[in-house]
Design a binder for these strands. Sequence first.
DNA 1: GCCCAGGTGGGTA
DNA 2: TACCCACATGGG
Length: 207
Amino acid sequence: MSNARGKRLLDVYHRLYAAYGPQHEIIAGAILTQSAAWSNVEQALGKLKAAGALSPEGIAGLPESELAHLVRPSGYYNAKARKLKAFVRLLDRDFGGDLEAMLGSPIDELREALLSTHGIGPETADSILLYAAGRPVFVIDAYTRRTFSRLGSAAERDTYEGWQRLFAESLPFSAPLFNEYHALIVRHGKDVCRKRPLCGECPLAAS
DNA sequence: GCCCAGGTGGGTA
DNA sequence: TACCCACATGGG
């Protein structure tokens, strides 16, 4: 491991880790961020990590009540503890507890499995598919709807599928593009444009 | 004090 | 299918 190749491989690992974070942290974050401010989610993730519970094994090994206590800052803590437990049960039951196997399984199969799990709806499922599994799925959230409605580019059908079709049929089919685009929409949504839609500081004002 | 945040599931008509 | 409502904390 002291040779150049080993260092190179470790360097790649650290770069990827710095860019994406551990996959179980992304998944926990996707569930905890449901109808919650990200600053509160970060507090909850910090508590999980400090308790050594930020992993499928950690979550599985904790009573639901203790899990609830740890995720309390993210709100709806009893409901979210139950959802984390449900995800780990799915991982265990359908993929033998192997997260890599789960994330590497066929996209339609995985999406269906996620949607059949308590507490995972279309947005959370697609967040996991895009951000944890790196699949080309466009995530539709409140920021996306708000932003494109204001721009006069709302989906024809105001449903999750309707919005998703709008992006899927109009953009190159690329996970990195979908990832970056959605991240930018969120960034924009949290920025000046929440209180002052399409104001002078908004990069979308003149478009 | 009041309002809202990157949703979801269950119940009712 | 289309609404309601519960679930709950922390920050502006």
